[in-house]
């Protein structure tokens, strides 16, 4: 019998951890190609049946569209706000700067349930109905801290001298930002948008509080479907979601590399 060394134990343990993490995902992806109604192994064939069914399901398609629009809007708004706030925090001094910065980063630490309820109560207090705008605002609150952290870190690394050199050469504040700061920030901006999009696309806890019947996102929809029955359609939807969330950053990375080489 071979001797069991410490290292082989660690290797075994690591494999277990990975298996634990990825096995469910693999099962979902594999089962999504199962032609049977009830998933069981070994599979009796291979089919796109559930994907086709998915593509014909109007409510899911609408939820998908909602999620995409919501994610994109969140990414754009969150990044725009994040860039401006970061400029203020990193480049200027004003009273209450640190407090304000901490406040904006706080949503990372506050449980989402509380955020969800809080925003809902706030909207109620303002006597406004739940709406798609509420979802966008909520998702911006959720994703802004990540954008802030990424952009501030990058901005801190961009030496002030670049901006000062540009100004000394005759560029005003806006021109300096456009010609120097913004291009140097591009990687951080892309990363920020990506983070915002994926977080928004994936979010369920807080979104459950904010979504209405008309404004369902994909995760909320899946959650709703699960309550009734476990349809294999969900596996197909899960596979699509997984592909999307993995493909988006890969695509962005590829594009940014291609862009930076092109310029």
């Amino acid at each position: 019998m071979p001797k069991i060394s410490g290292w082989s134990l660690i290797r075994f343990y690591t494999i277990l951890v990975y298996a634990f993490m990825f096995a469910p995902i693999v099962v979902v992806v594999v089962l999504s190609f199962n032609p049977e109604q009830f998933g069981s192994f070994p599979m009796k064939g291979f089919s796109f049946r559930w994907f086709i069914k998915l593509a014909q399901n109007q409510t899911i398609l609408i939820a998908f569209k909602n999620s995409l629009i919501l994610g994109s809007l969140t990414a754009v708004v969150s990044t725009a706000v994040g860039i401006m706030a970061s400029m203020a925090f990193v480049r200027y001094n004003f009273p209450g700067k640190n407090t304000l910065n901490t406040l904006l980063l706080a949503p990372i630490m506050i449980p989402e349930v509380i955020l969800g309820v809080a925003l809902l109560l706030f909207i109620r207090w303002l006597q406004q109905p739940k709406s798609f705008a509420l979802l966008v605002i909520g998702h911006v609150v959720l994703t802004l801290p990540y954008v802030l952290l990424i952009v501030q870190a990058r901005l801190g690394g961009i030496k002030k001298e670049y901006e000062e050199a540009a100004q000394s050469l005759g560029a005003n504040g806006l021109q300096t930002f456009k010609e120097v700061t913004l291009p140097l920030l591009t990687p951080a901006i892309l990363a920020g948008m990506l983070f915002s999009f994926t977080i928004s696309f994936d979010d369920i806890t807080a979104t459950l509080f904010w979504a209405t019947a008309q404004n369902q996102t994909v995760p909320v929809k899946i959650f709703g479907m699960l309550r009734n029955s476990i349809s294999p359609e969900i596996n197909a939807l899960g596979t699509v979601m997984i592909v999307l969330t993995i493909a988006t950053p890969l695509l962005a990375g590829y594009l940014s590399r291609k862009l930076s080489r092109g310029s």
Partner: peptide, 20 residues
Amino acid sequence: IPIHKRNLGMIFQNYALFPH
């Protein structure tokens, strides 16, 4: 008068050439 209207040439210790 703000810096961009002063018509100055500045040279920095670390060159500060626009890297992009």
